[in-house]
């Protein structure tokens, strides 16, 4: 369960002050497939970053299960991300010098998982995301869709509680985007992992089990619906 309680976040850029989030509160139960939608500058990415422990709140609290993650220090947040969170980025953010296999396996190696287990789990997840036979390819030899599949595998390999995806289909064509969403949904159902993703793409919103709309840093709608 993710609990966002009356969170405020303000950015200072030069002389200008941007209130990215204003008194945002929401609860996300385990296993949900939730989309945070809204136009550019509405605060979607900020909310994701705060839940993902890569940014700090100015006011309010964020709880993940029984842990107040917003109060953790830098080291504590890193430890929490390492063990409990997975990330998928709009631009995939794969390590270019590593192969598909190594990009995924690297997550387990920093968790000090034994080599044999890393191999077995990595090959299995790559097969699940449809990249069997492409393990030794480097990101620059793969299409955008294939790179995003690696990113999904990388996010899921450590069996995290939550996967945070920042506009995961924004760089993909609609067909590939749909495939990626289908894959994410499939993983959500198979592993029970909570998926929180930001988007301004209507197709992605349609895919979500719950849609939270943000505007000017405030939640303007929050509704659960049946998905495709």
């Amino acid at each position: 369960m993710i609990r966002v309680e009356q969170v405020d976040k303000t950015y200072h850029t030069g002389d200008s002050v941007v209130r990215a989030l204003r008194n945002v509160s929401m609860h996300i139960p385990d296993g949900q497939f939730i989309s945070i939608a809204g136009p550019s500058g509405s605060g979607k990415t900020t909310l994701l970053n705060l839940i993902g422990c890569i940014d700090s709140v100015d006011k309010g609290e964020i709880w993940i299960d029984d842990k107040a993650v917003s109060t953790l220090g830098k080291h504590g947040k890193t430890e929490f991300r390492r063990s409990h969170l997975g990330f998928i980025f709009q631009t995939y953010n794969l390590i270019p010098v590593l192969t598909a296999y190594e990009n995924v396996a690297f997550v387990l190696s920093i968790l000090s998982v034994p080599e044999e287990e890393i191999k077995e789990r990595t090959l299995r997840i790559l097969e699940e995301v449809g990249l069997k036979g492409m393990e030794q390819r480097r990101p620059d030899k793969l299409s955008g869709g294939q790179q995003q599949r690696i990113a999904i595998a990388r996010a899921l390999i450590k069996h995290p509680k939550i996967v945070l995806a920042d506009e995961p289909t924004a760089n993909l064509d609609s067909k590939t985007g749909k495939e990626i969403l289908a894959l994410m949904k499939q993983m959500n159902q198979r592993y029970g992992t909570t998926f929180v993703f930001s988007t301004h793409d209507q197709m992605v919103m349609d895919y979500a089990g719950r849609l939270v709309q943000l505007h000017d840093g405030q939640i303007v709608s929050d509704d659960s619906r049946s998905t495709q």
Partner: peptide
């Protein structure tokens, strides 16, 4: 820089 951010998001500590 982006790579550093990604590695940090994945849970790599500053020392690493």
């Amino acid at each position: 820089m982006r790579e550093i951010g990604t590695l940090a998001a994945m849970g790599m500590h500053g020392k690493e």
